[in-house]
């Protein structure tokens, strides 16, 4: 009994152990790795993936997947940038509706949530597989981004907006604070609310959850809306950091998010995993990227290594299930 308990304890800490081992190896291999500046740099770069991956975790816990987060990120970032820079001009009434930074953040999050909700709506009401529905949204949102930006970057968003992505508060980069807030909210939802229990129940056994009286459609729509909103937050950070909304921003970000979720120990078949595991997964990917750059490893090899790590995480997950 004690041995089983010990094994479960190790399993729950496997992401953290992997991260620590990775840090030790990189510290030995390069003296540039274990510095405060580099640590903050890794966290700043990881913050966007943490935001997206946190939303993705909620989706994956319901046994779903959201491939549209990268495109939703781009669209929301573009809308935020466009409204902040150009507002809405009503020529007929000689009226200009301007947006404050708070305003564009709210609009972006609402747009992200609506797009996510639409994903959930299509998946639940028309019984479309999440892979297909969100793949369609990936293309739709990217198309709208191109239409909205006319294929051009929207730049020069001002120093105040740039503070969101490039500023620091109490010595910690602002994106890290934002990611922390997102993680705390998601952790609260999964651990302390009825919605969180429903999410795990649906992922564990959807049929049983339905017979228990859980409104599957409503829960899934909320979950996808949350994932969209979190992608939008990622979009605001990216846009702010670059001082520019790029129409091709966020391409393949969904893959990094899924990787963080898987490496963090969340089961792709749903019902099992934690937000903190995903945070660890995202940091492992961030540290891996950073370490490989510091070691002057070719970007092409970096992709191979990242892919191998994801594969390893999935295999470990499968072996865990067999146990």
């Amino acid at each position: 009994m004690a041995a089983i308990h010990y094994k479960q304890r190790i399993k729950s800490l496997q992401s953290l152990i992997a991260l620590l081992l990775l840090c030790i190896v990189l510290t030995i291999l390069t003296d540039k790795f274990f510095t405060a500046d580099n640590g903050l740099n890794v966290l700043r770069q990881t913050a966007v993936n943490i935001c997206i991956a946190t939303g993705m975790t909620l989706v994956v816990l319901t046994a779903g997947i959201d491939l549209s987060v990268g495109s939703v990120l781009a669209l929301c970032g573009a809308i935020a940038a466009g409204l902040l820079k150009n507002g809405i001009a009503l020529q007929a009434t000689d009226t200009y509706i301007g947006f404050t930074i708070l305003g564009v953040i709210l609009v972006a999050i609402i747009v992200g949530a609506v797009l996510g909700w639409f994903n959930g709506f299509v998946i639940t009401k028309f019984n479309v597989p999440p892979f297909v529905a969100t793949l369609a949204m990936l293309t739709i949102a990217r198309g709208f981004t191109m239409l909205y930006t006319k294929g051009q970057p929207i730049s020069n968003l001002g120093a105040k907006f740039a503070f969101i992505g490039a500023g620091s508060f109490l010595g910690i980069p602002v994106p890290v604070w934002i990611a922390l807030a997102v993680v705390l909210i998601a952790a609260f939802i999964t651990r302390q609310t009825r919605l969180g229990r429903y999410i795990y129940a649906i992922g564990g056994n959807e049929t049983a959850a339905r017979f228990s009286g859980i409104n599957i459609s409503a829960v899934k729509m909320i979950v996808y809306a949350l994932a969209g909103a979190m992608a939008a937050i990622g979009g605001i950070i990216v846009t702010s950091r670059l001082d520019s909304a790029q129409p091709n921003a966020g391409s393949s970000y969904e893959l990094d998010a899924i990787a963080a979720v898987v490496i963090g120990g969340t089961s792709l078949s749903g019902g099992r995993g934690t937000i903190w595991g995903t945070v660890m997964g995202a940091i492992i990917i961030g540290v891996l990227n950073n370490g490989l750059v510091l070691l002057n490893v070719s970007p092409f090899w970096q992709q191979v290594v990242k892919g191998a790590v994801i594969l390893l995480a999935v295999i470990i997950d499968k072996l865990d299930k067999k146990d």
């Binding site: 507002g87 001009a89 009503l90 020529q91 000689d94 009226t95 200009y96 509706i97 301007g98 947006f99 404050t100 708070l102 305003g103 709210l106 609009v107």
Partner: peptide
């Protein structure tokens, strides 16, 4: 409150 702090309206010609 959020709405009040999110948008402002001006004359387009002034802008």
């Amino acid at each position: 409150l959020l709405g009040y702090n999110s948008v402002y309206i001006k004359k387009l010609s002034d802008v």
